[in-house]
Simulated assay, not measured.
Amino acid sequence: MRKILLAAAALGALSLAGCGGKGDDKLGDQAAEAAENKAEILDEIADNQSGAAEDATEAQADATRAAGGAKEEAIDDADVNADAMSNAQKDGLINGQ
């Protein structure tokens, strides 16, 4: 149930991301998607754990999702000009490098 609620929240955040200014909101969407992919891997790991380890891994997944949402919002708010960026710069922005 928790995973369904988190997925629904992530989808809701992605749908709201299209309300930005003149920048390229796709970069923000890609950053959030990258974080969601990492969080899903953590959820799978947590499914194979129990007790405190499971709780810690689930908390890490939640934090990863939250960081992805914050990054998406920051990118969208900055209205970055993706056309003026190299692919390496875009990858760095999306993946936090």
Rank of each mutant, 00 (worst) to 15 (best):
A66S: 15
K22C: 05
G51V: 08
D55E: 15
N37V: 14
K38Y: 01
A59H: 04
K38E: 02
R65E: 00
D29L: 09
A53W: 02
A56F: 01
A61M: 04
A39E: 02
E36H: 08
G23R: 08
E58N: 05
L42R: 00
G28P: 06
N48D: 12
G21Q: 15
A31K: 02
D29P: 00
A52I: 03
N37F: 10
D62A: 15
E54M: 12
A66C: 11
N37S: 12
A52Y: 01
I41S: 12
G28C: 11
T57Q: 09
R65I: 05
D25H: 15
D47H: 01
A66G: 10
A63W: 03
A31S: 07
G69D: 07
E36T: 10
D24A: 09
G68F: 00
A34K: 02
T57H: 03
A39H: 04
D55R: 13
A52W: 05
I41T: 14
A34F: 07
Q30H: 10
Q60F: 02
N48Q: 13
G23S: 10
A67P: 02
D25S: 11
A53M: 13
A35V: 05
A63F: 04
G23P: 08
G69F: 03
A59R: 11
T64A: 14
A31R: 02
A31P: 05
E58D: 09
A56Q: 12
A35I: 03
D62Q: 12
Q30N: 12
E33M: 09
E58I: 06
T57A: 13
I41W: 07
G23M: 07
D24M: 04
Q49A: 11
E44R: 09
G28D: 11
A31H: 05
A67F: 02
A59Q: 11
D43T: 04
A56G: 05
A39L: 02
R65D: 01
L27C: 08
Q49W: 01
D47N: 12
Q49V: 00
A56T: 11
G23C: 08
L42D: 08
T57N: 03
N37Q: 15
G51Y: 12
G21N: 13
E54G: 08
D24K: 07
I45D: 15
K22D: 08
K22V: 05
K38C: 00
K38N: 06
I41Q: 12
E33V: 07
Q30D: 12
G21T: 06
N48E: 14
E36V: 13
D29Q: 06
G51T: 12
A70I: 04
K38H: 04
A32C: 10
G51W: 14
E54I: 03
A70P: 09
E54C: 09
A66K: 09
Q60W: 02
D43W: 03
N48F: 01
A66F: 00
E58M: 06
T64W: 11
D25M: 12
E54D: 07
Q30C: 09
D25Y: 13
D55L: 14
G23K: 07
N37R: 14
T64S: 06
T64G: 08
A35S: 13
Q30E: 13
A67M: 05
D55F: 06
L42W: 01
I45P: 06
G69E: 13
A31W: 02
E54T: 05
S50L: 06
T57Y: 00
D25G: 09
Q49M: 09
K26F: 06
A34D: 10
N37E: 15
R65F: 01
D47W: 02
N37H: 13
D24F: 01
A61W: 00
